[in-house]
Design a protein around this nucleic acid. Sequence first.
RNA 1: GGCGACGUACCCAAGUGGCUAAGGGAGAGGUCUGCAAAACCUUUAUGCCCCGGUUCAAAUCCGGGCGUCGCCUCCA
Length: 462
Amino acid sequence: MRIYNTMTGTKEEFVPLKKDCVGMYVCGPTVYNYIHIGNARSFVVFDMVRRYFEYRGYDVTFVQNFTDIDDKIIRKANEEGASVFEVSERYIGEYFKDADALGIERATVYPRATRVMEDIISFISDLVGKGYAYGTQDGVYFSVEKFKDYGKLSKKNTDDLISGARVDVNEQKKNPLDFALWKLAKPGEPYWESPWGQGRPGWHIECSVMSSKYLGNPFDIHGGGPDLVFPHHENEIAQSEAKSGVRFVNYWMHAGYLNIDNQKMSKSLGNFFTVREILDRYDPMTVRFFMLSAHYRNPINFSFELLDQAQVGLDRIKNCVFRLRELKGRAGECAGDKEVLQYAEEQRQNFISSMDDDFNTAEAISHIFNMVSFANTRIDDGSGQAAIDCAADAVTELMGVLGISLDIKKELLDEEIERQIEERQQARRRKDYAAADNIRDELKAKGIILEDTPQGVRWKRR
RNA sequence: GGCGACGUACCCAAGUGGCUAAGGGAGAGGUCUGCAAAACCUUUAUGCCCCGGUUCAAAUCCGGGCGUCGCCUCCA
């Protein structure tokens, strides 16, 4: 497998630290609000990565944190007159609702900043002891100039950053780029005891602490959104490597942005949709399919039109599997067809080689569509039972690797609808097509699509 | 200003040195059907932002433009 590593800017052959095992850490949400659809993209992307590793036989340890203490959470809690704990707890719950809907598998562990406070404090103590950190009147800071490799991930050099001069004013800091490891609490703010006084951890430190706690140093893969490259991941590297003296992470992976009107979706611009809003209007699997229809590192533009396109594409795949499953019962009438079997295996291999090449889901999906087309052409000519199963299984399996369930389970219609379908069939038999079409329209209004096939009436929900 | 990414058909989107440039959507024509839907067949880029260059050979490499976007500040 080849993976694009942000650190080196090239695709590299993936060599795990431990044979057949992968340790990956993905930066999770700061829980003060619902996640938006842009946040969701990177979670979907890394879920796809994780699923693919598992498909290829790796044992994956997947760690994703919750940032459950931070300025924004404090602000939100104050606004609502709630405690920080209540706010974070609530939005962790909401996160799981969205993530579950999108088919994102649960992580192996979900560490939270507030639950690893002792580890954080001892980590910072180490840094202070080694001379990488210093205290000020408002906290403890990491001294960037002590870490000579600072900027190696984001390809920035400290001189340019300083002259860029968009850093906040804080006379206490020795260098404008220095960042907080520990923030002392202002009156009324929640706090934890520490050798430097009552306070809370800075944002970057938790990820260094939690990743090393569960995965050690170095570990295989660290992922996150593209806007985390600088400064968050850069700072993680500085802290972790300063402390441990060894490489922090072997492969850095970053997803592309999900844009809207070709611009980054962001809360300050107000141009974002929450996952919740979108899921009111679209099947979550459609959203997931849309997100995976482009390569994970490329930016994708979000629009309802594109979502509609994705939905039609996904329906094509679902229809095919549906038809194949339907044929199962009539297998005896079909002639054998080894070709389908072979074709399915061929496309499966193509899928794998696309995915092996830095998780090229766009190309991988094209092989699924090829499989669908091939199967569709054979449905009418007739294929053997094994071949039909094989085709349906292959499509279902590969979509499953992408985390997209086809959900073609048979559900029962209520009696009223059942009766209407029968009524329409009678109308058709007596060639009363006006009445038949009427009923079809009525059902359509209820979300039931009818299709007349040589095997009888088929229905599906829209 | 510094650093970086991207620009492929009407739309989305792979391909990054060499068979006739994947795949999906949309459109057009056809098969099937009472009609519709689904499905199938045919069709839609002699060309991959522009201009140079390297090469037997470039969408793919190099140089220069133009355009779009991002990071440099909390942000997935």
